[in-house]
Design a protein around this nucleic acid. Sequence first.
DNA 1: AAATTATTGCAAATAATTTGCAATAAGGAG
DNA 2: CTCCTTATTGCAAATTATTTGCAATAATTT
Lengths: 143, 143
Amino acid sequence: MQNLKEIFVAEMRRSGLRLTENRLAIFKVLVEAKKPLSIQEIILAVGDGTHFTTVYRSIEAMAEVKILRTVSRGFKNLYELGEKFKPHHHHATCEKCGRTMEIHDPRLEKLMLELTMRAGLKPTTHQFELFGICRKCMKNMVK
Amino acid sequence: MQNLKEIFVAEMRRSGLRLTENRLAIFKVLVEAKKPLSIQEIILAVGDGTHFTTVYRSIEAMAEVKILRTVSRGFKNLYELGEKFKPHHHHATCEKCGRTMEIHDPRLEKLMLELTMRAGLKPTTHQFELFGICRKCMKNMVK
DNA sequence: AAATTATTGCAAATAATTTGCAATAAGGAG
DNA sequence: CTCCTTATTGCAAATTATTTGCAATAATTT
């Protein structure tokens, strides 16, 4: 985490954006969130200390210089830390208890790339979430 | 197409929703669109004939009974025709222009099941979206 | 420490979504 | 085919989300 903050400071400097309390607060929210967030969620998470207008503008500025990644899903944008900050992975989640496991599988990544290219796109990213019910929860449901 | 309309009429009847001009108009928009649409896009496409309030409520009603499928991309929902109209599939989307193609691949479904089970879960569902940049948009970016 | 200028907060404009209610019309019964 | 019931609609207005202009503030550079 301290490591991530250092990267953040360096990236801000590199891109000529000023390092402010507000932007640091947004960064922390995004570090703690384990998933991409909408602007509304970020506004909620940073709290009253930062005006919502500022969140809109800061997010836009940081996305512009790739410190944040815009996850363009349809017509709403979500935001997460850019490539510099996070390794690539996916999740399998229990629908009942929310327990989450990480998925790492080269076949998956390979297939994703293949399918994206076959669709005529230069691959940028993909979203992939598995859902199911874990053994513990299965047992509880039987009772 | 005529075929799809017959399914639509039958599904509306089955689920107890009334078949109205407005809903038929929305249905047609969704048949013609080759990708999931946001509510705003649907409102635009159906035109003044249908009040936007009605679009909101009709979409909600039809999604409720699975005539429409909610494509939950983050926090914005998009809508497309449900399982009865189209086989199970996923999407590959251009991040720039939003153009979307359908992905059908048995290897994908198989791998997904395997990974879910390997994570100790009894599979229920999954979310899977591919993103990239289409050739047209690549060219525009170079200019 | 002072100067420069990006960033912020606020107020107010604009856009998107939801809700209450009275008028309308779809679908079933006769 | 006509009547009846009640889901559906359109409208106005409330709520919520996003954007913009501007003057005050504060991050960097020297």
